[in-house]
Structures are given as structure tokens and as C-alpha cells.
């Protein structure tokens, strides 16, 4: 299949790479850029494990073509900590015990990042509604919501 050039930024770094047009953003991040912090589970837009931020907005990388990210700014979990300092959301997740197996966590943390960027002081109900599409099988969401609140207050 004919490849196309994709220019985009990932975690602040500009990339110019060749991709096959049918490739998803998830495949490009994981397979081409080796950013395996972005997870893949259902691959059908049902679980949220693959969530990344595209120009600051949460998107399901399994359901988005890589070429749709042309000229966009992508944030993956690898881009959350800055200069070796963990982001307050990461700290909240670690301290509150919100990470068990950790497979939902990258997507979940990026979702919370998008929420806090929109709404710096969300209520428990707002957090619950915002992460409705991000499934977690380990935590019962209780400590995830605690962590989001702690990050908002930090």
C-alpha cells in the first residue's frame, strides 16, 4: 500500500514519518514510535484504554486514523511528566492507590487531564460522568475519583 507522510507533534517533539493510510494513531504510536505507554484493549472504541490527547482533547487512538493527526499536537502518557517531575495527576494516582494493574491508567490519567484542563474543580459527579467511557476492572473507580480530586486540589 502506498505510504503517506505524516507530520505531527508527539509530546512536544515534531515527527515526519511515513505511514500507511489505514493505520490507526494507536498503531503508529505503539509500533512506529515505540510509545507503548498508550495501551490497546478492545480496539473498537469501547474501553478508553487507548486514550490520548489530540490538541488537548481526549481521543480514542484505536479508532482514529494516524493521518487525522496531521499537524496536531499529541500528548501520550509518556508526555505527562515534565523534566523528570511527575504531573500532579500521576502523583495523585500513585498516592491514592488508584493504579492496580495499570492497564487502564494511562488512558484514565489523560482523560482526567482533559477534564481538569476544562474544569479545574470538578465534583465527584462530574468526574464520574467524564470517565464513563474509560473502563477499569481493578479499582471500582473509587480511588481513581479520589486521585482526580486530589490532583484538582494540588
Amino acid at each position: 500500500m502506498k505510504k503517506e507522510i505524516l507530520n505531527f507533534k508527539v509530546n512536544g517533539t515534531p515527527y515526519e514519518i511515513e505511514v500507511e493510510p489505514q493505520m490507526t494513531l494507536n498503531e503508529v504510536l505503539r509500533e512506529q514510535l515505540n510509545l507503548t505507554g498508550t495501551k490497546i484493549s478492545c480496539a473498537e472504541g469501547e474501553c478508553g484504554a487507548c486514550t490520548v490527547l489530540v490538541d488537548g482533547k481526549p481521543e480514542l487512538s484505536c479508532s482514529m486514523l494516524a493521518l487525522a493527526a496531521r499537524d496536531k499536537d499529541i500528548t501520550t502518557i509518556e508526555g505527562l511528566a515534565k523534566d523528570g517531575e511527575l504531573h500532579k495527576i500521576q502523583k495523585g494516582f500513585i498516592e491514592k492507590g488508584a493504579i492496580q494493574c495499570g492497564f487502564c491508567s494511562p488512558g484514565m490519567m489523560l482523560m482526567i487531564k482533559a477534564l481538569l484542563d476544562e474544569n479545574p474543580n470538578p465534583t465527584k459527579e462530574e468526574i464520574t460522568a467524564y470517565i464513563a467511557g474509560n473502563l477499569c476492572r481493578c479499582t471500582g473507580y473509587v480511588k481513581i475519583i479520589d486521585a482526580a480530586k486530589a490532583a484538582a486540589e494540588a
Partner: peptide
């Protein structure tokens, strides 16, 4: 857990 928070943790896939 820190490694799971940063995406460094390696799972089989």
C-alpha cells in the same frame, strides 16, 4: 506503581 503511572511498565503486548 510509578512505572505504571509514566507508561514505562512493560506488559507482554
Amino acid at each position: 506503581v510509578v512505572l505504571k503511572a509514566t507508561g514505562e511498565a512493560i506488559f507482554v503486548p
